[in-house]
Structure formats: structure tokens, C-alpha cells
Design a binder for these strands. Structure first.
Length: 646
RNA sequence: GCCAACAUAGCUCAGUUGGCCAGAGCAGCUGAUUUGUAAUCAGCCGGUCGGGGGUUCGAAUCCCUCUGUUGGCUCCA
């Protein structure tokens, strides 16, 4: 007999070789119907795999992430089976589950596949799912495994098997399809009730662009048709929040083929919004002891040879521009740090001046591959809210604290609640990969970890993720539909101070090497605004939105009063407009709602007589009558609360 | 850059066995209307059908090519 411990810590005795499925049946038939896989100890197993030792197990259903993973992984097999039946002779790469669904990389040989074929494949998948195919796990020797796939002529699987050790190879067989697979899988395919293939894309074999490109098909499955429909609605909702769509509708930015791809044009409303963000940060930085600097958009190639960027990125940058007479070469600046290093070098520094914090909204240009460009999140010209802090190794901790203060203030002001933080440290087993002394690295890493602990940051620490020049801390936010975006970053740099031979004179009257900290709370203005748009769905925080209130006169008769209201609002620093079109009020309200203007102020006979406004809040409706000063206070208090909250 | 799909008016989209001067709604302009919490009515303007080449008596429609966009892959100082 063996002892099985359940999540609630009850222990049950079963015969050796019992399966998780049998345990589930023992608990309840309903549970057994829903079991997709089981967590056994640290591993996820097939529910029907015999358990031979004492173990703590957890039965996984559709409600568990790991249960979903098993379902989607099994769905990938099922899709492969369908594809193999429809397109005999194709070869398979890998087919894992992903965060939302699964994909399979397929070498379609001479077949050409497009989304038009999805319908056919989906039907086949459902047909196969109804056969209630079971997934049979088989241990296979390496020789047998190699033989099976060489007979099948699938060189991709052969390559995968070559990398595995004999004794740890398993096959899974379901229906007509046998695959090299570690598992786990769901008991049978009957759980897969609804399927949707989502996209087809090229994907390099093993992610190597020098190797063959396979066709990757993405899909997702659900145990209920209704859940698929809900998911599709969710995708539709996501589309409506797309910053590219809202950017056009709200007239924030545009692109022009004439100007060039990946080069955003900020329209007046977008520029105004961005300027407000920049001014806000400038003010916060001024308070925090930053000094503004301004540097040109180009720099001599020698600057980048000194920084090392030329050697590393020169070949994939925009080609240098040259002076017509001397033939001197200049790069469009891909980052601001080399320029800032030269500012540091403009004069000798005493330890008393440190930390020195140089800030610049610096516009940089990078050659991004054309297929990579995406709205404002991935562009070829963008502005970083950059600053470089030159300090001593002992000051790193304080400086990190200071930067985190700024970042958290910003996220609060913009209502980003879900902030993920990642600390990237050295790979402790490969210390020689990194530049800078062991001592300094230890000091910086310790400082970062301490800061995170002292502030109670919910940070994830990743070893081996640091840049070669220093450890870093990145801030990611989730947008309203759960996608993660990397925004702010704080990076320690031991490299550039060496390369630019930066020094300061210490208390001992000797030269010392400062440490540099790169930091950008927004990251890039372009990406940040894009994420902000998607995060708030175009309903910007009141302090940022281009138009805070629009005055809607009932008819032309109240035009003068509307003007008066607007002037009073301006006195209270409220940004407003008047809709003086000869339209009905219902129409003006509708248009203002669509433009996502936070407040609509309706004025007619009654309001004019009593010097008031009738306030309607976007998305909420009528709020009743206000005096103008009361309304102004309401708005200003809300703005104040967001911006000044720390 | 690679794979796939797409490209018709400012926006959203009709327009397929190739065949009358290429259509609609919204937006814009003009006029009428003077309006009370999500669309007043009428008229007008607006397109080298992404660019170029080809097939054809005839191309938005078929073929080639270039450019761009979208979804992935790769990359991201």
C-alpha cells in the first residue's frame, strides 16, 4: 500500500500502482470527469499514470493553469494528427502549449497553407476529438526512437532525439498519431469540445534564422463552446483598445510612408499629452536633484567606437552620414549615454559633486527590422526619458531608492496598479562573462536586493539575466487585458565609465572610477504612451487628457453663456472646448462620449439664469447641476490627488 | 530581414465566371433647423482602386515586381 497526500493534507491509503484518475473517482465521479492531469510531487503527470510510491498529489482541472496546459498540449497533438491526415508526408517540429493555447511547427513540404485552410483543419480536429482518443505513454529506447522517426523521414524529431539521453525518451500515441513527447496529456480527447485556429506564421527551426523556416499554426481549445465564444469576445475587446486604432480615432499620432516607416508623427493632441507627461516628469526630477542636459542627434563614429556600440551594433545601425568635404562619419544617436559621458568628462569632478544626475529627453534612432515595427511600441525613432547618474559604488543603493520613488510616483499618477518588477543579476556560475570587479558587482547586487526587500517590492529575481555591463531592475506593467509590457528600467553600468575613463577625485586626493546608472521611468515616450492608451482604453487620467470638459450649449442662444463658462474654466486651469455646432444636444453628447471627453457641461436657459452648469460625466451620465467654482474644485482636487500622491 | 495574409475616398467597408462614367455609411463643406442628456434634414465635395510593369478588344478584378500594413519568427544598446 502507498500513502497519497491530498492538497488539504488528508492522507489516503491506496494500492501501489493506483492512478490519479482512480483517486479522483474515489473522491467523486464529478471530479473524475473534470480531471485533466495531476500534479504528483514536483511533476505534472498523466492522470492515468500509475503511482508507485508515497506521494502528495493534486488533481488538475480546467481551473488550474497546469490543467489548461495539459489540455492545450494535448490539443497540439490532436492538431498535428489532423494535419497529418489532411496533408500526408508533412514533418513536425515542436508543438508546445503557450500562455493562451498552443502551436505546432510544421514543415508542410510542398503544401502551401494559409488561414483559408483553418476551417478544414478545425473540423478534422473536432472529428478526431469525438473519437475519444486516449493518450498512451510509452517508454522508448533511443535506438527505437531514432528508428521510428527515420522511417517516417522526420529529420526534426531525429534532431530532437539526438539531444536526449537513452532512458528518458517517451512517445505518446493517440489515434493515428505518435509523437516524441515528455507529456503530460489529458486522459482522452473528449474534453476538447471547441477549437479555434488563430494564426499562421513562419518560425525558424529552433529559433535560428539561419535554419529552415517552418509553418507555425497557433490555436486554442476549450472544454465548452461557450468559453470559446467568450474568448473571442475578449479578443474583440482587446482590438478596440489597440493604441493604433485609438491613436487615429483620438487624433494622437499618425505615420506617413513619405516620412518613412517606424517614424511616428505626433499630432497636436498627442504632442500636447506627451508634453504634459514630460513636464510632469521634469518637475519630479528637478525635485529629486536631476540636472537637465541637451545633446545633439548625431555623434561622431569615434564616440561609438569608444563606447563599444560601434563594434557591437554598427553593422545593424542606420549607416553613418558623412560630411561632404572631410568625409567624417556620424551616427544618428542610438542612445544618449556616450554623449552624457562626454558631458561628465567636460571637467574634473570631486566626490563632493556625486551623485551627478544628468537628465535628457533624448531622441534616438535605431534600425529595427521592418517586420518588427509595430505602432508606437516598436519604432525607429523614439525619445527616451533618459538620465545617467554618476555615483560611487556606495551610493548605488540610495540612488536606486530615489529612482524607484520616481517610478512608483508615475505609476500611481497613471493608475497602473499591476506592476511587475524583475531584478536581473549575474549568472553566479559564469562570473567571467561580465565586466567590472567582483567586489563591485557584489556591492551593487546586494544594494538592489536590499532596496527591493526594504521597500517590500514584489520583485522576481532572475540570475543570468543581467547585461554584461551591470545588474538591472526592470518594471513591467500589465494592461487591462493582461498583456505584459516592459517600461521603466534601472541599470548599473561598470562598462562605460571604464571606456570613457570617467574619474572623480576622492577624499584621498586620488582618482576613482564612478559607477553609472542608466534609468528611464517611462522607457520611451512612444512605447509608454502606447501602453497608456491600451491600459486606459483611451480614457486618459483627468490630468493628462487633451480636453477635460466640453461645454454644450443647448442652442445658439446660449453661445455667449457658454463662452463665459469656458473663460471661467480657463481661469481655473481647466482645459475645455465648446461644441457650437447647430446640432441637437443628444448629438453633441454622443460625439463627446465617443471622443472620451471626461465631462460634458450642458448649458441652456436654466443654467444661464442661475449661473450654473449641468454636468454629465463620461460613461456615467447626468451628475446634476453645479456652480462653476464647485465643478472646478472637483476637477482640480481629482487632478491634484493623482499627481501629488506619492 | 524571413513566412503568411492584406492594400478601393480622411475612416469603416461594398464591388469575383474581367465589360456601362467605381458605390455606400460616417467624417468634411454649404444651407435649412434653434434643439435639454448617445446620431435633425437636404444638397455638395471627395478616389491615378498602394506604385510600376505585363496579359487582354477591355483590368479594382488575372500574372510579375516594388512599397507599405497586419499576425508571427528572429532581433532589441
Amino acid at each position: 500500500m502507498i500513502q497519497i497526500t491530498l492538497p488539504d493534507n488528508t492522507v489516503r491509503e491506496y494500492r501501489e500502482g493506483i492512478t490519479a484518475m482512480e483517486v479522483a473517482q474515489d473522491i467523486s465521479a464529478g471530479l473524475a470527469r473534470n480531471v485533466l492531469a495531476a500534479q504528483v510531487g514536483d511533476e505534472v503527470w498523466d492522470a492515468n499514470r500509475p503511482i508507485t510510491e508515497d506521494a502528495s498529489i493534486q488533481l488538475l482541472t480546467w481551473r488550474d493553469e497546469k490543467g489548461k496546459a495539459a489540455m492545450w498540449h494535448s490539443s497540439a497533438h490532436l492538431m498535428a494528427e489532423a494535419i497529418e491526415l489532411l496533408y500526408p508526408g508533412v514533418k513536425f517540429g515542436i508543438g508546445p502549449d503557450i500562455a493562451a493555447g498552443f502551436y505546432y511547427d510544421v514543415d508542410f513540404m510542398d503544401y502551401s497553407i494559409s488561414e483559408k485552410d483553418f476551417d478544414k483543419i478545425e473540423k478534422k480536429i473536432i472529428e478526431l476529438a469525438r473519437e475519444k482518443q486516449q493518450f498512451l505513454r510509452k517508454d522508448v529506447s533511443k535506438t527505437d526512437a531514432l528508428q521510428y522517426f527515420s522511417e517516417k523521414g522526420d529529420e526534426y524529431k531525429l534532431e530532437l532525439i539526438e539531444d536526449l539521453n537513452d532512458g528518458e525518451i517517451t512517445f505518446y500515441e493517440s489515434g493515428h498519431f505518435t509523437d516524441l513527447c515528455r507529456g503530460p496529456h489529458i486522459p482522452d480527447t473528449s474534453t476538447i469540445k471547441a477549437v479555434k485556429l488563430l494564426k499562421v506564421a513562419g518560425a525558424y527551426w529552433r529559433g535560428d534564422e539561419k535554419r529552415k523556416q517552418l509553418t507555425r499554426i497557433y490555436g486554442i481549445t476549450f472544454p465548452k463552446k461557450k468559453e470559446l465564444d467568450e474568448y473571442l469576445v475578449l479578443l474583440e475587446e482587446a482590438k478596440k483598445r489597440d493604441h493604433r486604432l485609438l491613436g487615429r480615432e483620438l487624433e494622437l499620432f499618425t505615420f506617413s510612408q513619405q516620412v518613412g516607416q517606424g517614424l511616428p508623427l505626433w499630432l497636436p493632441k498627442g504632442a500636447e499629452l506627451r508634453e504634459r507627461l514630460e513636464n510632469y516628469l521634469k518637475e519630479v526630477q528637478r525635485e529629486a536633484g536631476y540636472e537637465p542636459v541637451i545633446t545633439p542627434h548625431i555623434g561622431n563614429v569615434n564616440l561609438y567606437k569608444t563606447s563599444g556600440h560601434y563594434q557591437k551594433y554598427g553593422s545593424e545601425s542606420f549607416h553613418p552620414i558623412t560630411t561632404p568635404v572631410e568625409g567624417e562619419e556620424f551616427f544618428l544617436k542610438p542612445m544618449n549615454c556616450p554623449h552624457h559621458c562626454e558631458i561628465f568628462n567636460a571637467k574634473p569632478h570631486s566626490y563632493k559633486e556625486l551623485p551627478l544626475r544628468l537628465a535628457e529627453f533624448g531622441t534616438v534612432y535605431r534600425y529595427e527590422q521592418s517586420g518588427e515595427l509595430h505602432g508606437l511600441t516598436r519604432v525607429r525613432g523614439f525619445t527616451q526619458d533618459d538620465a545617467h547618474i554618476f555615483c560611487t559604488p556606495d551610493q548605488i543603493k540610495d540612488e536606486f531608492n530615489g529612482v524607484i520613488d520616481i517610478i512608483q510616483r508615475i505609476f500611481t499618477a497613471l493608475d497602473f496598479k499591476d506592476v511587475l518588477i524583475q531584478i536581473s543579476l549575474r549568472d553566479p556560475d559564469n562570473k567571467e562573462k561580465y565586466i567590472g570587479s567582483d567586489e563591485n558587482w557584489d556591492k551593487a547586487e546586494k544594494a538592489i536586493i536590499e532596496v527591493a526587500e526594504e521597500r517590500g517590492l514584489n520583485a522576481k529575481t532572475e540570475y543570468g539575466e543581467a547585461a554584461f555591463y551591470g545588474p538591472k531592475m526592470d518594471f513591467m506593467v500589465k494592461d487591462a487585458i493582461g498583456r505584459k509590457w516592459q517600461l521603466g528600467t534601472i541599470q548599473v553600468d561598470y562598462n562605460l565609465p571604464e571606456r570613457f575613463d570617467l574619474t572623480y577625485i576622492g577624499t584621498d586626493n586620488e582618482k576613482h572610477r564612478p559607477v553609472m546608472i542608466h534609468r528611464a521611468p517611462f522607457g520611451s515616450m512612444e512605447r509608454f504612451v502606447a501602453v497608456l492608451i491600451e491600459h486606459c482604453g483611451g480614457n486618459f487620467p483627468l490630468w493628462l487628457t487633451p480636453t477635460q470638459a466640453i461645454v454644450l450649449p443647448i442652442s445658439e442662444k446660449y453661445q455667449n453663456y457658454a463662452e463665459k463658462v469656458l473663460q471661467l474654466l480657463k481661469k481655473h486651469e481647466i482645459r475645455g472646448l465648446i461644441d457650437d455646432r447647430s446640432e441637437k444636444t443628444g448629438r453633441k453628447i454622443r460625439d463627446a462620449e465617443l471622443k472620451k471627453i471626461p465631462f460634458m457641461l450642458i448649458v441652456g436657459e436654466k443654467e444661464e439664469a442661475e449661473d450654473s452648469i449641468s454636468v454629465r460625466k463620461h460613461g456615467h451620465g447626468d451628475m446634476g447641476t453645479f456652480s462653476i467654482p464647485d465643478f472646478a474644485n472637483l476637477i482640480n482636487e481629482e487632478v491634484d490627488q493623482m499627481i501629488n500622491k506619492k
